[in-house]
Simulated scan of single mutants.
Amino acid sequence: MESQEHVKPTDIISAMSDNKDIRSLIYMVRGQQVMLDSDLAKLYKVETKVFNQAVNRNLDRFPDNFRFQLTKEEFDALRSQIATSNGKGGRRYRPYMFTEQGIAMLSGVLRSDIAVQMSIRIMNAFVEMRRFISNNALLFEKISSIELKQLEYQKSTDEKFDKVFRYIADHAEVEQKIFFDGQIYDAFSLITSIIQKAQNEIILIDGYVDVDTLNILAKKNKGTDAKIYTYASATLSNKDVEKFNSQYPTLTIKKTQVFHDRFIILDKKMAYHIGASIKDAGKKCFGISLMKDNEIVIELLNRLKTI
């Protein structure tokens, strides 16, 4: 499998829409996200018995934090969910659960093209679930019991379930987020979601922009203008800008040495402080912070007027 440092954002984002069904098969057991052996076997297109036999032949690759068998109490607690969602309530043995690390190991054990591609899809689904839970933890704590009941009612159909996610997208805001080295997908996904909040204008202050920066800005909403303030040494050429504008107008570039830190300003109303160039997001440890003081946003905009 290709390492995360070599995975381009444009390659990753295309798989996001394929992960909805997989996310519904992820359970929370012992405080971590896991998947059932039978569900994994189905995804990898093998029988559950054959699947577990392949794993048992390579047990040295699956320590307890990669794979574990449910206790009777855990199985009883999970049985109703399994029976309702997957129709597997009649299983005669306690299933094995695989953690994210265990699933990453499966592609090397099952040894097939399907296994490799499916492992990539499953890992992407885990990342999406982890990011969703992390970014909305505060929201879940603040929602009153009445609102929770309303949200649960909305989940009764797929259409109403989508409204819950739109509700969360409209009301939840990440104030601070830190990413560690290797979290390229998580960082790219969050920065993309920030870019897509803008309806009219995006201002990016980043001294080290390049073509990868444009790949991220290409995710902006149609009709949203983009302005980049960057160093004179930035590698973007006039031809790069022309190609971008031919498909995603309108982008303008201004050169300045005034700024050291990186900022994203949306619609002249909201600003984020970013600890690394967005083209390098996730390659090293960095943070993103929402700037809650509107006066600071105004000061930034006034400073830009002088350039």
Score class of each variant (00 low, 15 high):
I120H: 04
L78G: 15
K42R: 05
M28V: 03
Y229M: 06
S246Y: 15
L290D: 14
Q247E: 15
Q117Y: 07
Y272D: 02
K160C: 09
D210Y: 05
N200C: 09
H273G: 11
F51S: 03
H260A: 14
M16L: 09
D37W: 03
D240F: 14
Y248A: 08
D280R: 13
Y208W: 06
V211W: 08
Q53T: 06
K72T: 13
K243T: 15
I264P: 05
T84N: 07
R67L: 02
I26Q: 14
T230D: 03
M105W: 00
D170Y: 02
K279W: 06
I82Q: 10
L139Q: 01
Q176D: 05
D210E: 14
V55Y: 03
D37Q: 11
T84A: 10
R61W: 07
L25N: 10
V209P: 06
I82T: 15
S145M: 11
V174A: 01
P63G: 02
N56M: 07
L70I: 03
I122L: 15
V209Y: 05
I191W: 15
F75G: 02
R130C: 08
V164M: 02
D64H: 02
G90W: 01
I146Q: 09
I120A: 05
D181Y: 04
N86F: 14
F286Q: 08
R91G: 13
M28A: 03
Y185C: 06
F68I: 00
Y93I: 14
M1L: 07
N19L: 04
S14C: 12
S112I: 01
Y231C: 09
K227Y: 13
F66G: 00
G90L: 05
E242T: 06
N302K: 13
S85E: 14
I228S: 06
Q117L: 14
A234D: 14
Q183N: 13
L36P: 04
N58R: 09
D261V: 04
T157K: 11
H171F: 10
M105P: 00
R94W: 09
D225E: 09
N294Q: 15
T71G: 03
N200D: 14
A234H: 08
T84M: 09
N86D: 03
S189E: 06
K292Y: 01
T71W: 05
I12G: 03
F165P: 04
F62Y: 09
L290P: 10
R130P: 04
A276T: 15
T224E: 06
I13V: 07
S277L: 11
L217I: 10
F66P: 00
F51M: 12
D158K: 12
D39I: 07
I191N: 13
D37F: 03
D181M: 03
R67H: 00
P63T: 07
K283F: 13
V209N: 04
S112R: 02
Q33L: 00
Y185A: 11
D113C: 00
